[in-house]
Nucleic acid binder design. Structure first.
Lengths: 209, 209
DNA sequence: CAAAATTTTGACCGGTTGGACAAACGTTAG
DNA sequence: CTAACGTTTGTCCAACCGGTCAAAATTTTG
């Protein structure tokens, strides 16, 4: 059984947090195989055997990190609700997602790394929890389309495009900065992105005239 | 100097191609640090020392692969031209990019891997060649906006959004398939994506009424 | 305080990895 | 044919990496 309460010490709680924070930094920058236990241990300010006292295997750290990530990662989509104006709902979903890319870029990159490598460790979750949630929200969006509140399109691809455009600013951050240059690549780029995305998803590119 | 003609044998040319093809497969699936010379050698059907006869270091393979990639990768944007109807130009740029995601997913993932890890090996190219090209095309797009041919927005973020939405179907392929399920995740998903993206970039989501 | 439980560390281990090297093998040109 | 050159392979190495272990140091508990 074993599954209930891990019964942890104060020190264990603190140190495990410290390790997970360090591991997020290292894993998100180097991927799973590209990261070493030594790197994580050093980033957490402890020795390798000491780290391995709290997490017996490297994979355990990654797994714990992933489990925590997914809850916070899907939160914005969970909030997408049937109440309120559809267009406003979608706009604030886009804004929330963009804020997550701005405030939690490491989490975004950790997730991107995992998916890029074929999602070997979270595939069941993608086909289960994630698919269920997306199908559910796609149904909500379809309702809006039937009611004539938003244009008719494919709700699944709409969700993909929101994910892609917002996460791009976290996952491809270095490229965005390189292209925009030191001036426009500065702090304001997220506001620019928000303005652009709002217009794109609202009106597209066709001229108003 | 040394920079001019490498003067290669027929066998050298063939084997180097073989190695690069194998390396693309391995690197794109596992990232640079996650891939081993042995894996690449086996995929190329030769022994490790034999591979190292053609490329002295693991990094040399990666570098060669990257240099080749960038030319083909930026080709669609280079084609974006001032002649012809702006809206049509943009639409066919999006289609070309989506076709690249469909036909060259390994190249897309190789690139994504490199950027995700902070672009340690191609940063100069991003700040040089890439930025120059994007700035140039952004100017073209700005011209279209001034002429009232397309709606006024930020051309740079427009380009980012096209990159993000199209490459998403290569880089996050497993997630897209998992969410769409075996039926809708099949061969037709690229046509669905094309239709959706066309509408998004053309008209946005606001209802027609 | 003292015993028990927890935490930390240094030393170590087996497997893997990138790469070196010389010898063997194959090819080609005179 | 044969010498020169190009190609392939087996063997080896040093560094690295994930993980173990027993002993030392520290904290908690009675």
């Amino acid at each position: 059984m074993e599954g209930s309460a891990p019964r942890r010490t104060r020190i264990q709680q603190e140190k495990r947090e410290l390790i997970l924070e360090a591991a997020l930094e290292v894993f998100s920058a180097n991927g799973f195989r590209g990261s070493t236990i030594d790197q994580i241990a050093e980033a957490a300010g402890m020795s390798k055997p000491n780290l391995l006292y709290y997490f017996r295997r490297k994979e355990d750290i990654h797994e714990t990190l992933m489990q925590r990530l997914l809850d916070t990662w899907l939160a914005p989509l969970r909030e997408l609700d049937d109440i309120g104006d559809p267009m406003t709902e979608l706009r604030s979903y886009i804004r929330r997602k963009l804020e997550m890319a701005r405030d939690f870029p490491r989490e975004s990159r950790l997730f991107a790394n995992e998916i890029l490598q074929g999602a070997p460790r979270i595939m069941p979750m993608l086909e289960g929890e994630l698919k269920t949630l997306v199908d559910e929200k796609a149904a909500v969006i379809k309702g809006w389309m039937r009611a004539g509140k938003i244009a008719r399109t494919d709700p699944w691809h709409l969700i993909f495009s929101i994910w892609a455009t917002t996460q791009h600013y976290a996952d491809f951050d270095v490229q965005v900065r390189a292209v925009l240059g030191p001036d426009r690549g500065g702090d304001g780029r997220f506001e620019d992105a928000a303005r652009f995305l709002e217009q794109l998803f609202l009106d597209g590119l066709k001229p108003k005239g």
